[in-house]
Amino acid sequence: MSVRVGMGDYNICKAPDSIVTLGLGSCVGVVLYDKTTNTAGMLHAMLPDSTRIRNNQNRAKFVDTGLEDLLKLMDRHGVKRENLVAKMAGGAKMFAFADNTEISDIGKRNVLSAKIHLRKYGIPLIAEDTGLNYGRTIEFYTTDSRLEIRAVGKEITSI
């Protein structure tokens, strides 16, 4: 079975299931994986920082609060933080605006925020496929810890 994660959402799955999110653009997809319990969690966050936004009720929309809540959910499923590793994809710049406005580098800022918070929690980031200018569907397979990346008009890759 494949567990689906929507935009501004997170979820977890256990082996032998996989977990997937479709059409990541400037958003970032973060996968946390614990091999000892065969549990994977995935966050599809849209914005880097909840503290800079007035309407921040939907915590899964933000990298900071989304990661915090995903980790709490994994805690409840008996996952030990020290066993976790992370993989990440997304954070693209979908439109080639020349200026460096907030719109044009939101993808980059999502990726940076994820790195900062992973470091804060002491979770090693072991692989990433981020930036560039195209959308990605990502699927994590608990059976072989592989994060598969699919894009329009491109070969399927794995990290």
Partner: peptide, 18 residues
């Protein structure tokens, strides 16, 4: 841009996500 709907619409979605 020509890409997956989710990826294209993530740009305005992020903007009104604020």
């Amino acid at each position: 841009a020509y890409d997956m709907a989710g990826a294209i619409l993530s740009v305005p979605a992020i903007e009104f996500g604020r």
